[in-house]
């Protein structure tokens, strides 16, 4: 049978440990003993500053309890903030990705944009065949040729 003797720190012993603690000479075990001692209630007032110090450390070590509801609430808030901040940019950039400027005036009518695109290809028609020829050196040649054909029709 094994008996465990509980070792209680006396006031005098606590004073000695506190002094040692302030000198930075305490071991880990001694600090734990001191902490246990200071966690007691009804200690003389002279131990109050140390109680505050060790109490603070103890408070820091305590696990913070986060409720699921609070977590979800914050996640929802973060999602809304993100949506407000990034959403319009994505929407705007997607919308701005198809456009034409004619004499400085923005055109967003898709038919008109495509007409302008085809008109620009007519102007470059002399280069078109050379483009097709040279594309032979690029992979996926057939695919690219098809695309150029689509635009030159």
């Amino acid at each position: 049978m094994i008996f465990k003797m509980k070792y209680k720190v006396s006031y005098a012993e606590a004073d000695r440990l506190i002094e040692k603690y302030y000198d930075g000479l305490t071991t880990g075990t001694e600090e734990k003993q001191l902490q246990k001692f200071l966690m007691q209630s009804n200690l003389p007032d002279r131990f109050k500053p140390e109680q505050a110090i060790f109490g603070y450390f103890d408070h820091k070590k305590a696990k913070t309890h986060v409720s699921m509801l609070s977590y979800m609430r914050w996640t929802a808030v973060a999602a809304i903030v993100l949506l407000i901040a990034v959403g319009p940019q994505l929407f705007v950039s997607a919308n701005q990705s198809n456009y034409a400027y004619i004499d400085g005036i923005k055109v967003s009518d898709m038919r008109q944009i495509k007409t302008q695109a085809l008109a620009s290809l007519v102007d470059i028609s002399s280069s078109k065949d050379e483009v097709k020829e040279s594309l032979k050196s690029i992979n996926d040649t057939e695919l690219i040729k098809q695309q150029l054909d689509v635009f030159s029709k």
Binding site: S97, N98, A100, Y101, D103, I113, K114, Q147, V150
Partner: peptide, 21 residues
């Protein structure tokens, strides 16, 4: 791009859908 006497066109994925451009 946005000056007078200039035509600028930009087409991307959604408009070029099916062309692989």
């Amino acid at each position: 791009g946005e000056r007078k006497g200039v035509v600028m066109v930009e087409l991307t994925d959604e408009m070029l859908n099916g062309y692989d451009f």
